[in-house]
């Protein structure tokens, strides 16, 4: 069926895909989670409304989200080199993937946190809770299932973006599917990589949903 070299390539592809997807999503949340929190707090119905900050972040997010990933990948090369010292390879793609994921994550977090019952937030305010307590205990605590569902969606999206990593030699399953499956008409390889991608996405989705369900005490 598959020769050894092909098999090795596929295994490497799985490793690269997971490496890029998981790390980019992780770093994406380091930027995106605070971003989503600030958006929630500064929106007009938030607990610290601030039109200017909200507007600025809103515009930045809309701009970065409008840039096609391929272009972002190229535009960020100087920054990538600054951060990881290399413009090519799997590690180098984590930088643009992170920056593509962060605004998406910011929006997902914002929408999750805004689902939290306003009344519960008010109750916390009436108890004299500090903002930090409201953010962590009430907003994040109450929205945790929605936030987790968001993580699974982000993982899927980042995995999709990572298919473009081949442009800068990032590798991964998506790149194999494009280069061997599409460019070289190797339908078998295309099919195998697609199956792997589907399985990975399903696994992440399944685990995420299971965790979300476990953590949800609302019913």
């Amino acid at each position: 069926m598959l020769d050894k070299a092909m098999l090795e390539m596929l295994l490497e592809g799985i490793r690269d895909t997971l490496y890029m997807t998981l790390l980019s999503t992780f770093f994406g949340y380091i930027i995106g989670l605070p971003l989503g929190i600030v958006l929630t707090l500064t929106d007009k119905d938030g607990i610290a409304p601030n039109k200017i900050i909200y507007r600025i972040l809103d515009i930045i997010i809309n701009i970065t989200r409008s840039i096609p990933f391929l272009i972002l990948l190229i535009l960020l090369i100087p920054l990538t080199k600054l951060i990881v010292g290399k413009s090519y390879g799997a590690t180098a793609t984590i930088v643009p993937l992170t920056f593509a994921a962060a605004p998406l994550i910011g929006r997902m977090v914002e929408s999750s946190l805004k689902e939290v019952n306003q009344g519960v937030i008010e109750a916390a305010i009436s108890m004299g809770a500090r903002k930090r307590m409201i953010i962590f205990k009430v907003l994040i605590g109450e929205a945790r299932t929605s936030l987790l569902v968001g993580v699974t969606i982000v993982l899927g999206t980042v995995l999709g973006y990572s298919a473009m990593a081949g442009v800068v030699g990032g590798g991964g399953l998506g790149d194999i599917a494009i280069r061997y499956g599409y460019y070289r008409y190797n339908t078998k390889i295309m099919l195998i990589t697609l199956i792997f991608i589907v399985v990975i996405v399903q696994l992440m989705q399944g685990l995420g949903m299971l965790a979300a369900k476990r953590l949800d005490h609302r019913r």
Binding site: I74, Y88, G89, G166, V167, V168, G169, R179
Partner: peptide
């Protein structure tokens, strides 16, 4: 051998 998009 580092494979990259031709333009890259």
């Amino acid at each position: 051998i580092q494979e990259l998009e031709a333009a890259q």
